[in-house]
């Protein structure tokens, strides 16, 4: 990541009526990265997004988009942003197309052919001339994405984008966002409380709790897990306490929830298995205990409700 970030939050704080809603958040999102903003409901995700797009003032700190401050150089900063804040609320009495024309007029240099291209991109050709009030939530979500990408923003901000989408729609959106990041180098900032969703979509996630970023971590993809890296592994074996003695400290053997657990790479797992079998234990199963983002999330937020 030697590139300069598309968006940089610097000690962003929001106080409303003496109460600190957002507490000194700092993070950066880089070109081509899908960045997840994860937190329980009420943790401040939407407030942070509102500050990023200039709908809310920032009490202290600053947000720079492409180097321009959203508070001091609003037009230059926001020009590079496309966003859906909360639900994609569009003009219901206009058609989808008229909505897109409306927002295209507000940004420089968007041609009719670009509008048509975006309509195809979100797969709405057949319904784009219907009034928005006749759209399903999923179609409104697509139209919301269309208005957000019209002007080819460097930063795409989506607040709970999978709300109201069916599984196929979610998958489609995920593929589209990853493609946008990969092929156009767009920085995508997505908020969600759906952990599994973020795990599939994001390169990095920040975990927000009570207005503070408690952790920022990379999401490890299955394809990236190396053979040498040790995993937590459970052995399903009879008489685990006795089996533990056979290991003799190999792979930091221990008992977890009455089961034999080790932390070991693939070679060591095989060796442990051989030792157990040679010592006369029946091994019924060996299971890698993958840590999901959910586990990590609950670990960090100490099991607070996820909404």
């Amino acid at each position: 990541m030697t590139q300069s970030p598309v968006v940089r939050l610097q000690d962003v704080t929001k106080k409303i009526g003496g109460r600190t809603i957002i507490d000194r958040i700092s993070l950066e999102v880089y070109p081509g990265e899908v960045f997840g903003f994860l937190g329980p409901n009420g943790s401040g995700k939407t407030t942070t997004i509102r500050m990023m797009v200039g709908l809310m003032s920032i009490t202290s700190g600053d947000i720079l988009i492409g180097g321009h401050s959203i508070r001091k150089e609003f037009p230059q900063a926001i020009r590079q942003v496309g966003a859906i804040v909360e639900n994609p609320e569009l003009y219901r009495y206009l058609t989808g197309y008229q909505n897109l024309v409306h927002f295209a007029r507000m940004a420089p240099g968007i041609s009719r052919s670009r509008i048509d291209e975006v309509v195809r991109l979100v797969g709405m050709e057949s319904r784009i001339h219907d009034k928005v009030k006749r759209y399903s939530l999923g179609m409104r979500q697509r139209l919301g994405v269309a208005q957000a990408v019209l002007h080819r923003p460097r930063l795409l901000v989506l607040d709970e984008p999978t709300n109201g989408l069916d599984p196929a729609g979610i998958r489609e959106l995920r593929d589209y966002l990853r493609k946008l990041a990969r092929e156009e180098g767009t920085a995508v900032f997505v908020s969600s409380h759906l952990l599994s969703e973020m795990e599939l979509m994001c390169d990095r996630v920040a975990i927000l709790q009570k207005g503070r970023v408690v952790d920022i971590r990379a999401v490890r993809r299955d394809s990236e897990s190396s053979e040498a890296a040790p995993d937590d592994v459970w052995f399903d074996v009879e008489r685990p306490e006795e089996a533990l003695r056979v290991l003799d400290g190999l792979g930091k053997g221990r008992i977890e929830d009455g089961r034999l657990a080790v932390t070991a790479d693939r070679k060591t797992v095989a060796e442990i298995n051989r030792k157990l079998v040679e010592a006369g234990f029946s091994v019924y199963g060996i299971r890698v205990k993958t840590k999901t983002l959910e586990d990590q999330f609950l670990e960090v937020t100490r099991g607070e409700s996820v909404g």
Partner: peptide, 14 residues
């Protein structure tokens, strides 16, 4: 009331 203000104000206009 329609919520469109959020999309209207995030454009390069004062």
């Amino acid at each position: 009331s329609q919520g469109t203000i959020k999309l209207l104000l995030i454009r390069p206009w004062r």
